[in-house]
Design a protein around this nucleic acid. Structure first.
Lengths: 209, 209
DNA sequence: CGACATGTTGAGATGGATCAACACTTGTGG
DNA sequence: CCACAAGTGTTGATCCATCTCAACATGTCG
C-alpha cells in the first residue's frame, strides 16, 4: 500500500495507461475540466472505492483523481485486468459491483446538477456524503470528518462559489446542519433529507477488496 | 430476443429485481425523476449498450429505462450474474468494459449539466450522439436517425423546454447542424465541436456481446 | 372534426452568476 | 518576531442566462 498527501493528484486528468487502485483510507474525488478551466467534480471517493477503472478501457484518461485528505492506496497487480477476471472471477464480479455503484453515484449527481435547486443540491450533497461516510464507519458521535472546502462543494454541484456559500449559510441558519472544524453534523436529518428529496435505499453489503 | 415499441418502458423506475439485457437495436434512454416530477435523462442508449446492470447490485431500481424507438433486446440468462462471471470470465470482463464506458458517458453529461452554457450543452449533445451513432454504424450519407424530441433534449441537458428550443434554433440558424424529418446532420462539424469543447478520444473497439 | 403531442416565439420574472470588499488563518521568508 | 502572500470564508450590489408564462402553428391520429 502507498500513501499520498492531501491535495495530491492520484490520476492526472490526461494520461495514458495508469493503474488500478482501491482507496484504502482517506477521501478523494474524481473531476473533469473544460479547456478554459471550468471544473466539475464527478463524485467523491471514500474508503473501499475503486480508482482508475475507466482508464483500463478508455485509452486516454478522461478524468482526474485528487486526494482530499492523506490517502492510502492499494494497487492491483500490474499484469492486467483481463488476467484478473480469468483467474479470480469473484474479484472481477466485485469490481463490476463497485463500478455499477459508482455509476449510481454519478447518476445521483447528474440529477442534482440538472434538476435540483441550489438549496436542494447542497442538502443532497450533505445527506448523501454523510450516509456514505456512515456506511463505511466514518461517523462517530453523529458527525463525520468533512474535508471539502466550499470550492469543492461548488464544483461538485455546478454552482458558483459565492452562491454555494450563501446557500450553506442559509441551511445552517435554519438549523439543518453544521460544518465546524472540519466536521459535518446533520442537526435535523429528517428536514434536510426532505429538502434533498432523499430516500434511503438499501444497498447490498459492499464487497471487501 | 424480444422487441418493444417506441415509448415503452423497458425498466420501470422503481422495481425490485429486474433483468439484464443488451440493446440489440434501436434507441433508448435512462432517467431519474424527483418526487415532484422533474426528470433528468442520464444518458442515451445505442445498440450494444447494456441495460439493467445497476439493478443487479442495488436492491431497488433507481432509474428507469425507456425506449425511444422500437428496440430489440437480448436477455442474459436468468441464473445470475455471478454464475456468468465464474463460467465465462471473458463475458464478465466485457460487461465491466461496458459499465465503465457507460459511466464515462454519464461523466460527460454531468460535466455538461454542471459547467457548460446552454449553447455548449446542446452542441455537445449533438456532436456526442452523432459520433456514438457513427461508431455503431448508424450514420449514412452524413446523417443519422435522431428520434429525440426537444423535451428529451431538455431533460438530458437540465434545461427548460423553451430555452432548449431557442438554443437549437440559434445553432441551426448559424448553420451548425440541422434536424429534419427525424434525422440529424452536422453541417459544420468542426465549429460545433469547438463550441462543445469536444475532443474526440479514441476508444477501444467495443466488445460484441 | 377534436384531442394531443410537438415545435416556435415573445415578454417578463428570477435564481444564480459575477464583481467587489473584507475578515480570518496559515505558512513562509526576512 | 513581524510582514506578507495565499487559501478560505463571508456578505452586499448588480447583472444576465435561463425560467416561466402565454399564445399560436403544425401534424397526426382516432
Amino acid at each position: 500500500m502507498s500513501i499520498q498527501p492531501a491535495g495530491s493528484s492520484i490520476v492526472p486528468e490526461f494520461r495514458v495507461g495508469s493503474r488500478l487502485y482501491t482507496l484504502y483510507s482517506g477521501w478523494a474525488f474524481r473531476y473533469k475540466t473544460l479547456s478554459d478551466g471550468r471544473r466539475q467534480i464527478l463524485n467523491f471517493l471514500l474508503p473501499g472505492d475503486l480508482i482508475g477503472l475507466q482508464e483500463e478501457f478508455v485509452d486516454q484518461s478522461t478524468h482526474g483523481v485528487e486526494a482530499l485528505t492523506a490517502v492510502g492506496l492499494c494497487e492491483f497487480p500490474r499484469d492486467g485486468l483481463w488476467d484478473l477476471f480469468r483467474q479470480k472471477p469473484e474479484l472481477g464480479y466485485q469490481i463490476t459491483w463497485l463500478a455499477a455503484r459508482e455509476e449510481h453515484l454519478v447518476d445521483e449527481n447528474l440529477l442534482s446538477a440538472g434538476r435540483r435547486t441550489a438549496a436542494e443540491r447542497v442538502a443532497m450533497l450533505l445527506v448523501h456524503l454523510y450516509r456514505r461516510a456512515e456506511r463505511v464507519g466514518l461517523v462517530t458521535e453523529s458527525r463525520t470528518e468533512f474535508p471539502l472546502t466550499q470550492q469543492h462543494i461548488a464544483d461538485a454541484l455546478g454552482l458558483s462559489l459565492v452562491h454555494t456559500n450563501k446557500t450553506l449559510r442559509q441551511l445552517q441558519r435554519l438549523g439543518l446542519h453544521s460544518i465546524d472544524g472540519g466536521y459535518l453534523t446533520l442537526e435535523d436529518p429528517h428536514a434536510i433529507a426532505r429538502i434533498a428529496d432523499w430516500v434511503d435505499r438499501p444497498m447490498r453489503r459492499q464487497p471487501l477488496i
